[in-house]
């Protein structure tokens, strides 16, 4: 009896030993491979089945792992601001779907305030225009705006190039990304694009239901909300990006910053107070809402719409909010490949 027990114990111990050996081996193997990222190979740009064809012209900027990594480093690089204090990531925080969560308008250099709420950086490959007023129409040129804006990063592209050239790491990283020596503003902007293009949010419950992944289904409440959404919201917040990328005035009126939105770009009377229809993805992480962040909660936003032509009772409002919950993509906000 005792012997049997002992033999069993020794068997268990052996199993333990193998197990520990295995773990050590795994750790050693991982250390040897130098980087945890190597475990999942670089996939480049991947379009989900339920997404349309992207708008970005990838032929002009081939995405590579080195380019993506350089773009990521630049995105979190304070050298891109005049006094080397803030980076793109200061106002576009990964955990909040790359917004400046909790700030009505973003705080830039020396805590200067702009007049608009930082938009989330996600699914930019499908963007036809950029920013709340659509003043920029090419992703590669979009980074110039925050970099040179006096209340954001207040730096000149040409000066950043000088700073990066003097840096020990960057010359090698640019060479790795673009094949030849040389740091230019064009390369810097393209690398930033490579990083931002891969910030794709397509793993929400909604996406999985649409793709029929793992037999995932909406709850009855979500389904009811989805039908209401299609009836009342889908015209502007069109699936699957949840924006038709048009510019609209939803009756918020002129704010104290006297921001006329799209009008400042076109100077057309008809564009006064129009702003880009924002996506409804990841609302959980991107409060406050609207171009000036003046709506702190989704309930307040829903109230604003109901003061217009959309009439919903309390149950219906709850159902729509339940559907909007399914557009949150936690995996996107927690993705280590994107975080600082």
């Amino acid at each position: 009896m005792t012997i049997r027990t002992t033999s069993r114990r020794s068997q268990v111990n052996k199993q333990h030993l193998y197990c520990i050996l295995g773990i050590i081996l795994a750790i050693v193997a991982c250390r040897k491979s130098d980087d945890w990222v190597d475990i999942s190979p670089f996939m480049g740009f991947q379009k989900a089945r339920n997404f349309p064809e992207p708008v970005y012209n990838f032929a002009t900027n081939k995405i590579t792992e080195a380019g993506f990594n350089l773009g990521k480093k630049l995105f979190y690089e304070p050298l891109l601001s005049r006094n080397n204090t803030i980076s793109c990531g200061s106002c576009h925080i990964s955990y909040y779907a790359f917004t400046h969560h909790g700030h009505t308008v973003s705080h830039g250099i020396e805590d200067k305030e702009g007049i608009r709420n930082a938009l989330p950086i996600m699914n930019l490959a499908w963007n036809e225009s950029f920013f709340w007023d659509g003043g920029v129409h090419n992703l590669d040129l979009s980074s110039v705006a925050p970099i040179e804006n006096p209340v954001e990063m207040d730096e000149k592209l040409s000066n950043i190039v000088l700073k990066l050239q003097k840096n020990k790491e960057y010359p090698g990283l640019f060479k790795a990304a673009f094949g030849t020596e040389g740091i230019s503003s064009e390369r810097m902007l393209k690398a930033l694009s490579q990083f931002m293009l891969l910030l794709i949010s397509d793993q929400s419950k909604y996406d999985k239901v649409q793709r029929g992944e793992g037999g995932m289904l909406f709850t009855a409440e979500e389904q009811a909300g989805y039908l209401l959404f299609k009836k009342h919201c889908n015209t502007c917040h069109s699936e699957p990006l949840f924006t038709d990328q048009s510019f609209r005035d939803i009756g918020l009126g002129l704010n104290p910053a006297k921001d006329y939105g799209r009008y400042d770009i076109t100077l057309h009377e008809r564009d006064k107070l129009k702003f880009k229809v924002p996506s409804l993805r990841n609302l959980k992480y991107t409060a406050p809402y609207m171009h000036d962040g003046s709506y702190l909660t989704l309930a307040a936003v829903m109230q604003q719409f109901q003061s217009g032509s959309i009439k919903l009772n309390n149950e219906e409002t709850t159902q729509i909010l339940a559907f909007l919950e399914t557009l949150n993509d936690a995996q996107f906000t927690l993705d280590k490949r994107f975080a600082e």
């Binding site: 012209n57 002009t60 900027n61 920013f131 007023d133 003043g135 920029v136 129409h137 090419n138 590669d140 040129l141 110039v144 705006a145 970099i147 040179e148 804006n149 000149k156 592209l157 040409s158 190039v161 230019s184 503003s185 064009e186 902007l189 393209k190 400042d264 770009i265």
Partner: peptide
């Protein structure tokens, strides 16, 4: 004015201080 940055060389580089970033 609408072309890719790769074709904005030399004097056309957007870092010459002759480019509007907010209204491209």
């Amino acid at each position: 004015n609408t072309e890719d940055i790769a074709s904005r060389l030399g004097d056309l580089s957007v870092d010459k201080g002759m480019y509007w970033s907010w209204n491209s």
